[in-house]
């Protein structure tokens, strides 16, 4: 049970969720890699493609 004496104050920038940051960074890199793979390899690599003027 937490007593009054064990309470500690955390300032705004003292909160440091480095694990969450690392996890999101990992998700981010995965997302970037999968997007590039899907667009450049799976889509543009699947020639011939419909081309023309916009």
């Amino acid at each position: 049970m937490a007593s009054e004496t064990s309470k500690r104050e955390l300032g705004h920038d003292d909160f440091d969720p480095i694990g969450t940051l690392a996890l999101i960074a990992l998700y981010f890199l995965l997302l970037v890699f999968l997007w590039l793979f899907m667009y450049f390899v799976e889509f543009l690599g699947n020639e011939p493609t419909v081309v023309g003027l916009i």
Partner: peptide
């Protein structure tokens, strides 16, 4: 900032496809 860059990146790749490669829609 990362989320913004991601959106810009998505739009940039699709723009490259349309302008650089010439991919178009039917």
């Amino acid at each position: 900032v990362g989320a913004m860059l991601l959106i810009v990146g998505f739009i940039a790749t699709v723009t490259y496809g349309a302008v650089g490669v010439g991919v178009t829609m039917i």
